[in-house]
Computed example of a mutant assay.
Amino acid sequence: MTFKEKLQMEHPELIDEEGYCEDCPEDYGYEVNSVCIERADGCRVCWDRVMPGTEEKKPLDAASVTLIAETYGLEKQLIKLIEECGELVTAAAKYDPQYHYTVEHIAEEAGDVRIMIMQIEHLLGIQDAVEDSMKRKIDRQIGQMKETDLLKQGQTLLDRYLESERIRIVQTLCPDDVPWLVREMGERWKANKCVQEDGCEKCWGLPLKPEEV
């Protein structure tokens, strides 16, 4: 998905008849600290870029994973699974929303664990059993969430998407990264003192209108 396609989905009114977009991707929180393309068609080229993380992904090469598993065997790969799980636990324990490299660390270690799980499933022939177990536990957890009113009845897809976007914005962006929002806050934003210990969550919690204080 390109930045322009993202804007088309969320703000179609900001794309003119010639296909030009208003402002920059950074102004809408689509990226942070972007480098402006200073040329005549710079904005068009910028908006036509593919958003990181939305690239077309190649399917996982399951045959290669199977080859690795059969080469090393069950005993060695069980030990390797234990090692990789330990590294994932360590990465999760060091997670800090203020530092993106901790997210990348979790992603890397989670990938290692998933590869090892695939190998163990193949070597033990338990793929179907694992999938059945996952389905049962997911259904059970959803049932418990409904019983304890943790899962809102009638929640729409948009509600769920906005919930995840809210978490992403608070964890990865500062209001200062969104120029139009800073302009709307005006002098009140200039007077705001960012408290590093509280992170950007404190800033995002500021009321938009003074009378709401």
Rank of each mutant, 00 (worst) to 15 (best):
F3C: 05
E5A: 15
K6N: 08
K6C: 12
K6R: 11
Q8E: 15
M9T: 12
E10R: 10
H11I: 00
P12W: 05
E13L: 02
E13K: 04
E18Y: 08
Y20N: 15
C24D: 11
C24W: 13
G29Q: 08
Y30S: 07
V35C: 13
V35I: 15
I37T: 12
A40R: 12
G42L: 05
G42A: 05
R44P: 00
D48M: 01
V50N: 05
G53D: 02
T54E: 12
D61W: 06
A62T: 09
A63K: 13
V65S: 04
T66R: 14
L67H: 06
A69V: 02
E70C: 05
T71Y: 08
Y72G: 00
G73R: 06
K80C: 02
K80F: 05
I82F: 11
I82T: 11
E83P: 00
G86H: 01
E87R: 00
V89H: 06
V89L: 10
T90G: 08
A92Y: 00
Y99T: 03
H100K: 04
T102P: 00
T102M: 01
V103D: 10
H105R: 10
H105Y: 01
E108K: 13
E109H: 03
A110T: 06
G111L: 01
G111P: 01
R114N: 11
I115S: 14
M116W: 02
M116F: 09
Q119E: 15
L123S: 04
L123V: 06
L124W: 09
I126G: 03
I126K: 11
D128P: 00
S133D: 12
M134S: 03
K135N: 06
K135W: 09
D139K: 13
I142F: 10
I142M: 12
K146F: 05
K146S: 03
G154P: 00
D159M: 01
Y161R: 15
S164M: 13
I167L: 13
Q171W: 06
L173M: 08
V178L: 15
V178H: 09
P179G: 07
P179D: 10
P179Q: 09
W180S: 03
V182N: 09
R183N: 15
E184V: 03
R188S: 12
V195H: 12
L206F: 10
P207F: 07
K209Q: 15
V213E: 14
